[in-house]
Nucleic acid binder design. Structure first.
Lengths: 245, 245
DNA sequence: ATTTATAAACGTCAAAAATACGTTTGCTAT
DNA sequence: ATAGCAAACGTATTTTTGACGTTTATAAAT
């Protein structure tokens, strides 16, 4: 049986997924579709974030973790609560009111918004009952509720965050190449970076450790592999040190 | 008559006040005191943040603005929503339970926390029915609920924020000296800064405008006065440019 | 076996910024 | 006058950045 819910508080999750093969940053969205039973008109046809009510016995963080797990099966991903959205009219658009009649919603719901950072390849969307789908963060479809705004603010926060903390390494394998890091920064920040300067700066960081190992199975000069040392990072840097790429 | 409240959602405000004369950053707190009617034992004797329930018809920002105005009379101050706190047991400490019996609280209340930035001299605490009082941010008294944690997180956020946006100038008069800016940074960040280097860096910013005016009424060499130009700042810098002092 | 294509990796130079100090200046009070 | 003092300026060195050119190692093609 489902635990008791707090009816007017929800958590919404902006799930950012980095696609290594296309080197693009994506957002995981859920299809919302409804047509009139009588006229067969399309009443609602758009996408929304994943989210759910907070249970009475869980923390907000736990709600976010649960919501992510239910959609993707994943746990232990990087997660950040970045803002609460609580305008009294935030669910009052015509389409949303139609939708609310068909779902279990409190009309004035305040949502605590989180974002997650993970790899698209870690999510299996095949057996997915929510019709969830990845969209490039710069090519989002029509969105319901105030979810467009939530995504925009999450993305802003993410850009700032990845310049001030090494969260980017959570999107890379344990052993990575310099160019993989650069691709990631470029995808998230939406900028071009000079490879030679980026390389020099990154290699000079004490927490970037060169391994005795190179890429295998590539048809070009195999790249040197590196690892990120959280230990070194934590000891070398006091809080609030800005990375700046 | 008071508007209808959302019983389980509140806004709490960390009011940071900069005291120009002592050059210290302070937090405005409200006295909480309760003694047993029978035994006269002191049941609760500590401080809490100012805060209140969200009304059904207002936005979260409006709640914060209202709460600040009721305590200080001030409007238009710098305000930032920085985090929501919603652990199910966040109001469940023994003292807090005693207090809740005596006040109008929902036991599982999620609070949206804001911080404000203003000058202590702008607040008149004389005719204050809340027994509000300033405390240096580094010498806080015993705090109720989870308000200690809320203040700590607000302060962390503030430190990062004032390095990435020129919010510090909201704490200075229209015309200020370089050393006043330095004092402010030192108070907020809790660090010492070399005056000669700081001076040079600040003067070189295009948005710091030297005025044709000097201090008057000082018994030393009067300092050059400057102003901050938001216009120049906005046009010169695209979003997310990090200031770094 | 040699060449070719290509990404990886290294190198250089000038400009800008940061760091760590020393010195001079202009004001008021004595 | 001059003493005291913060304001303001100066300087030398090191670090970091930005914008480039060049070389190297590998697999695949010839």
């Amino acid at each position: 049986m489902e635990p008791e819910k707090i009816l007017n508080i929800s958590v919404d999750c902006v799930v950012f997924g980095y696609d290594t093969s296309t080197k693009s940053l994506n957002v995981l969205l859920i299809k919302r579709y409804l047509e009139s039973e009588t006229t067969k008109d399309i009443l609602v046809d758009d996408y929304v974030l994943t989210g759910y009510h907070v249970y009475k016995t869980e923390t907000l963080d736990e709600t976010a973790t649960r919501v992510l797990k239910e959609l993707t099966g994943l746990t232990g991903q990087y997660k950040k609560q970045f803002k609460a959205f609580g305008d009294p009219d935030r669910l009052m658009n015509p389409k949303d009111l139609i939708w609310i009649k068909n779902a279990e919603f409190h009309k004035r719901t305040t949502t605590i918004a989180y974002y997650f950072l993970l790899k698209t390849e870690d999510v299996d969307l095949k057996n997915n009952k929510n019709k969830a789908q990845w969209f490039p963060v710069n090519a989002l479809p029509e969105l319901g509720f105030d979810h467009k705004q939530i995504i925009v603010e999450a993305y802003e926060d993410l850009k700032v965050k990845c310049l001030s903390e090494p969260i980017i390494f959570k999107l890379l394998p344990y052993k990575f190449t310099i160019n993989e890091v650069q691709d990631l920064y470029q995808s998230i920040l939406g900028i071009e970076i000079d490879n030679r300067n980026f390389r020099r700066k990154l290699i000079n960081k004490k927490y970037i450790i060169a391994l005795d190992e190179k890429q295998v199975g590539v048809s070009k000069k195999p790249a040197q592999l590196y690892m990120f040392s959280k230990e070194v990072y934590d000891t070398v840097f006091q809080k609030n040190y800005l990375i700046s790429i």
